[in-house]
């Protein structure tokens, strides 16, 4: 009898501990704090669906829900900013840059990383490329505008080439760091079997580096997709826009029609939000890996 009461008491205590398991004040504070994240986005959505006539001068004009939800602003914004072309350009530039980064930077990480132990030259080359991380775009910008124009690549190709170079320091560092933890035994076994280094890389090393490919892809894709400065200075005057660049170039056309402008901003934000929604885990991992490694 005493035993059962004792048992019941421990069970009750355990249940009580489980209930107080969560720190509710902090949970509530954090949920309330989400307002700072959602407020600007909420405002953008509400304004994007309204008509200019609903934009009264008081606070309701900006923040109240629209009287009827209309997609007309989005259609108009797509027409004004040539949305599909800008979206296509952003996709093209990002996709090609990511593929090039994985192929070129992966290879470079392998070749340089595996040679650094035995060669001072490769050691120097590694430091040389990695130190490129400290070079701000502001100093390269003006000479690069001249250079890409002279080479005839003041266009999407030039932008892709530049991204491939700009993200090389970080990506090289990531690949090299990942490779130091991979033992040489597998590669040596392949070599004994008569495989060439090239073949060994693609059939053994490249698949092993898969987690790092994900990190590199996420970091490269996000920086490329959101970058304004590079396409702004390299492609200015060509009439070719990326998604963020279109927002900048069509500011004057939006004028004071904020409904149109916000519809356009939302259209520019939606692709990356969808990407984030589906790849949240990879993105968070990638960002942490990129910063901490």
């Amino acid at each position: 009898m005493t035993q059962t009461t004792a048992m019941a008491r421990t069970a009750a205590a355990a249940r009580k501990r489980d209930k107080t398991h969560y720190n509710w004040p902090i949970t509530i504070l954090l949920i309330v704090g989400c307002v700072t994240i959602f407020f600007p986005l909420y405002m953008a959505v509400v304004i994007a669906f309204k008509q200019p006539s609903e934009m009264t001068n008081d606070i309701a004009g900006a923040l109240a829900l629209p009287t009827h939800w209309s997609l007309s602003n989005f259609a108009e914004a797509m027409r004004v900013t040539d949305f599909w072309h800008s979206l296509g350009n952003s996709f093209l530039i990002t996709a090609v840059t990511v593929v090039l980064a994985i192929v070129l930077h992966g290879l470079a990480g392998y070749a340089i990383g595996r040679s650094m132990k035995s060669s001072k030259v490769y050691n120097f080359l590694y430091l040389y490329i990695v130190s490129g991380m400290f070079v701000p775009f502001a100093i390269l910008m003006m000479p690069l505008v001249k250079q890409t124009a002279q080479m005839g690549i003041a266009n999407r190709i030039g932008v892709i080439v530049l991204y491939t170079v700009f993200y090389m320091p970080l990506n090289l560092m990531l690949y090299k760091g990942y490779l130091t933890n991979i033992p040489l035994a597998l590669e040596e076994a392949a070599r004994v079997d008569g495989a060439t280094t090239w073949k060994t890389y693609w059939s053994i090393v490249f698949p092993i580096m898969k987690p790092m490919h994900a990190t590199v892809a996420v970091l490269t894709a996000m920086s490329t997709w959101n970058d304004v400065m590079t396409p702004l200075v390299i492609m200015s005057g060509t009439g070719v826009n990326t998604l963020p660049l279109a927002q900048l170039n069509f500011q004057t056309e939006f004028g004071t029609n904020y409904n149109l402008a916000f519809a356009s901003y939302l259209l520019a934000l939606i692709p990356i939000l969808i990407f984030y929604l589906f790849c949240q885990k990879q993105i968070l991992n990638g960002v942490v890996n990129g910063a901490v490694k």
């Binding site: 954090l30 994240i37 996000m222 959101n226 304004v228 900048l248 934000l269 949240q280 968070l284």
Partner: peptide, 12 residues
């Protein structure tokens, strides 16, 4: 949720 601002472009 708290990470959302980081994925959005600075200009927009």
């Amino acid at each position: 949720i708290y990470f959302i601002p980081n994925v959005l472009g600075g200009l927009v």
